[in-house]
Simulated scan of single mutants.
Amino acid sequence: MLAFSLTLPATRVAVRDLDPWFVAFGRAAGAAVLASAYLYPNRAPRPARSQWWRLSIVALGVIVGFPLFTSLALTTQTAAHGAVVVTVLPAMTAIFAVLRAGERPPPLFWVAGLSGLLLVLTFLIATGTVHGGLNPADLFLLAAVVLCALGYAEGGALSRELGGARTICWALLLALPVTLPVTVVAAASHPPHTGAAGWSAFAYLTTVSMFLGFFAWYAGLALGGIARVGQLQLAQPILTLLWSAWLLAEPVTPATIATAVLVLACVVAIQRARTRRVLTDSRP
C-alpha cells in the first residue's frame, strides 16, 4: 500500500511530458522484462490452463486497465483529485472478494470500512479537493478503480495457488503481446522526451508500481484475506496527498494528520474483524 500510494503522483509527473499511452503500456512492457528475469532463472513452473484465464483477468485489471485510465485522467487532473476517486477502491475490492474469492466479511468489517470511507470523503470534500460534477477524467478514474479492484481480488485469490510474485510475473508476460506493440506505436507517434523527474517517475512506475509492489501486495491479500487486507488502502489517499505535497507542492493541513489517525483506527478495527471464506471455486 505504501508503494502504491506514490503511483498517482508519479503518474502525474510522468504524463506532463510523456504520452499517457506510452506511460501506461511502457511501464507494463518494462516490468515484463523484469518478470522474465525473475521467472526463468528460478525455473518457475508454467501455470495450469485454468489459471491462464484468471491471469488474463489480473492483466486486464492491474496491468492494462488501471495504468491506462489513470494515465489518461491525470493528463488533466491532479494527483490529489485522483486520490478522491481511489478512496472507493477498498470497497470495490471487498465486493470483488465476495464475488470472485468466496469471502464473507462480518458486519463489523463493513461498518468499519464504511466509516473509514466516509471519513476520507468528508475530509477531501471539506478541504475542497472535491468540487463540481463528474468530468471525463473522473469517469476514467472510476473505470480504473473498478478494473483495479477486479485485478486485486482475482490476483489475491490466484496468489493462494501461485504465490504473489509468480502471479504478477506471469500476468505481465501474458499481457506483453499487447503492451509491447502499443508501447512501440505510442513511442513512434510521440517520441518520448522528458527530464530527469519524468524518467524517474516512469522508472518508479515500472519497477515498483507495476512489479515489486505486487510481490508484497498479492502475498498479503492471499495470506490475510482479500477483503480485510484490501481495506489497508483506506489510508492510501492520505498518503497520496502527502506525496503530492512533497513532489507537486500541494498544501497539507493539520486536518490531514487528524484524518489519517482516524482512518488508521478504522483500519485497526477492520483487521480485528475475521473474514470467513466460502470454499467455492472462484473460476468462471
Rank of each mutant, 00 (worst) to 15 (best):
L221T: 02
V185K: 04
R277K: 14
L174G: 02
V33R: 03
R46I: 15
A269C: 15
R283M: 14
G133I: 10
L117F: 08
V13K: 00
G156E: 03
L232P: 02
L34H: 07
I95W: 02
A249T: 11
V120R: 01
A171N: 00
R274P: 07
Q77P: 13
S189N: 10
S115R: 06
F140P: 06
P254S: 12
A157E: 05
L134F: 14
V33W: 05
L221Y: 05
S282L: 13
A44W: 06
T253W: 14
T207V: 12
S36T: 15
L142V: 12
G82A: 11
V178A: 07
S200H: 00
F22M: 02
A255R: 15
A24T: 01
L68Q: 08
L2P: 09
S282R: 13
F96S: 00
R46E: 09
F140Q: 08
A31S: 05
S50W: 13
L141Y: 10
V62H: 07
S282H: 14
A3F: 12
G128R: 07
Q51V: 14
T275Q: 07
A197R: 02
L173N: 08
R274C: 12
G220H: 06
V120Y: 05
L242Q: 09
L139Y: 14
C148K: 10
R43S: 09
V86W: 15
L55C: 05
P237L: 04
A112K: 01
L162K: 00
E250R: 13
A59Q: 06
A29W: 01
P20T: 04
F69D: 14
T129K: 11
